[in-house]
Design a protein around this nucleic acid. Structure first.
Length: 489
RNA sequence: GCGCCGUUAGCUCAACUGGUAGAGCACCUGACUCUUAAUCAGGGGGUUGAAGGUUCGAGUCCUUCACGGCGCACCA
């Protein structure tokens, strides 16, 4: 097949047709033309001249004329080439074009007998010879492996995929507009970090030759953004690629995009209002509705969202009062349910596990789960009131079974922050590889003083999954991580 | 890491209990000036993911490996 096309390539050259020219003047696009003529039934022939370019997707040649569809970045439009218009020689060359080739066409718009908007080819130019056949026009490209590995092919052949990624861009743009219009400053912080932090996860490690030191790809930008709050930027955000050296599945890609937002003088209740309003606004802007369907589940994103305390939710679903139940008993329940707690089972880890087992699967409508155990939240401020010895002011966002975001009233007491880090270091020594590491400079920053601050992180990929009804994170990342191909290309 | 399923022509898929690997699209040649899954006639195309085993004979059965999907585990 490839040889056949290489033969054609040489044939074009010998006919004086350059198979890879340099530029082409385009003045019209498929979608634009369909829009412009949608109400015009009788189009006077020869009046509307256009120059279009795109990839040949279908081709129906007849003796001295032929139809084809070409696809540009906006859609498809039919073209009609005739020998009596092009002349015998040019038409001969036209007939040699393959599905997959990219061409430029100059001609006029008309309607065929069946009413399809079509460009009559008065002149055409080969813009790029394609050497590999496209997947079949009817069934398209179904094989997920090929679709992820050769996303370019997926994009050529499956129009829905293009739509998903256009939506992804619109979602991110809408978030920027939302935050920018409210006085937030978009910033950039290091991807290469000497000390990684801001989350509990294993990092990717790299090495800087000139500095002769290990560097880590960030697992979060949290600690840098809070340094900026110390520095006097009151409202900042960053849309950051983060990297976590962990397993991959439908919800996890080793590199993923997260937005983190910090607002001085705010607490986690402010961040709840911000989160629900922002996501609602983005949905309205991008989808035109707040009522969405995710994997068959009807979801209404209209604020206010339900708020439940983690402790109460566990009691409702399991009957366990985690504030009083003995740890051994809770561990027994976890085991019965098929769960497990890794490392040394602390109270917080047990509570989090019970939550995952009993509550998480039931969260379909947008829900803020609030107030987490302190020992699994080393960067969050203690809950005000008498529960502050065990709980922090933290919430997570669950929508449609997806864990979408994480937020807290940020811990700004440098002495408490040091104790929390020290506690994490102990966990690390006990075998918890994901425990947070000490960051002396961050504590130093807090010692200068950070105003009370609310922080919020939202997984952009998962938000895009939700708003595009995509079952897998790989469907919303253009080039998802894959093992190297074993077979020959 | 564990379990289940998958991998056959460029693409989408067939091939009963083990018995000559096939179709449609794509491709090549020819016919055809409003087709649109164009049509009609003819033609080429395969180390059945890889390696090994059982058998007279393996796409099919067994083992190992690779890649992928889903679930679980791990993990936000």
């Amino acid at each position: 097949m490839l040889e056949e096309r290489l033969r054609k390539l040489e044939e074009f050259r010998s006919l004086g047709v350059e198979p890879y020219p340099y530029r082409y003047e385009v003045d019209s696009y498929a979608a634009e033309l369909h829009e412009r003529f949608k109400d015009v039934q009788e189009i006077p022939e020869g009046k509307y001249n256009v120059s279009i370019a795109g990839r040949i997707m279908t081709k129906r040649d007849m003796g001295r004329g032929g139809f084809a569809h070409i696809q540009d970045s906006t859609g498809r439009i039919q073209i009609y080439a005739r020998q009596d218009v092009l002349g015998k020689e040019r038409y001969k060359i036209y007939k040699k074009l393959d599905v997959g080739d990219i061409i430029g066409v100059k001609g006029y718009v008309f309607r065929t007998r069946t009413g399809e908007l079509t460009v009559l080819v008065q002149d055409f130019q080969l813009l790029c010879k394609s050497l590999r056949p496209l997947p079949e026009k009817w069934h398209g490209l179904r094989d997920k492996e090929t679709r992820y590995r050769q996303r370019y092919l997926d994009l050529i052949v499956n129009p829905d995929v293009r739509e998903v990624f256009i939506k992804r861009t619109k979602i991110i743009r809408a978030i920027r507009e939302y935050l920018d219009s409210r006085g937030f400053l978009e910033v950039e912080t290091p991807v290469l970090q000497p000390i990684y932090g801001g989350a509990t996860a294993r990092p990717f490690v790299t090495y800087h030759n000139a500095l002769d030191m290990k560097l880590y790809l960030r697992i979060s930008d949290e600690l840098y953004l809070k340094r900026l709050i110390v520095g006097g930027f009151d409202k900042v955000y960053e849309i950051a690629k983060d990297f976590r050296n962990e397993g991959m599945d439908r919800f996890h890609n080793p590199e993923f995009t997260q937005i983190e937002i910090y607002q001085a003088y705010a607490d986690y209740t402010d961040m709840m209002r911000l989160a629900e309003d922002m996501i609602y606004t983005v949905a309205m802007r991008v989808l035109g509705t707040a009522r969405i369907t995710y994997q068959g589940q009807e979801i209404d994103l209209t604020p206010p969202w339900r708020r439940i305390s983690m402790i109460e939710a566990i009691e409702e679903e399991s009957g366990i009062n985690v504030m009083e139940a003995p740890e051994e008993e809770m561990l027994r329940v976890i085991e019965e349910k098929g769960g497990s707690v890794k490392g040394k089972p602390t109270w917080g880890k047990i509570v989090a596990e019970l939550f995952e087992l009993f509550v998480e699967p039931k969260l379909v409508q947008p829900t803020f789960v609030v107030d987490f155990p302190v020992d699994i939240s080393p960067l969050a401020k203690r809950k005000r009131g008498e529960l502050g010895d065990r709980l922090v002011e933290r919430f997570e966002i669950f929508i449609g079974g997806l864990e979408l975001g994480n937020a807290f009233s940020e811990l700004n007491d440098p002495l408490d922050q040091r104790r929390r880090f020290e506690e994490q270091m102990k966990q690390r020594e006990l075998g918890d590889e994901e425990a947070h590491v000490m960051d002396e400079d961050f504590i130093r920053a807090l010692e200068y003083g950070m105003p009370p601050t609310g922080g919020l992180g939202i997984g952009i990929d998962r938000l895009v999954m939700l708003l595009t009804d995509s079952p897998s994170i790989r469907d919303v990342i253009l080039f998802p991580q894959m093992r190297p191909e074993s077979r020959e290309v």
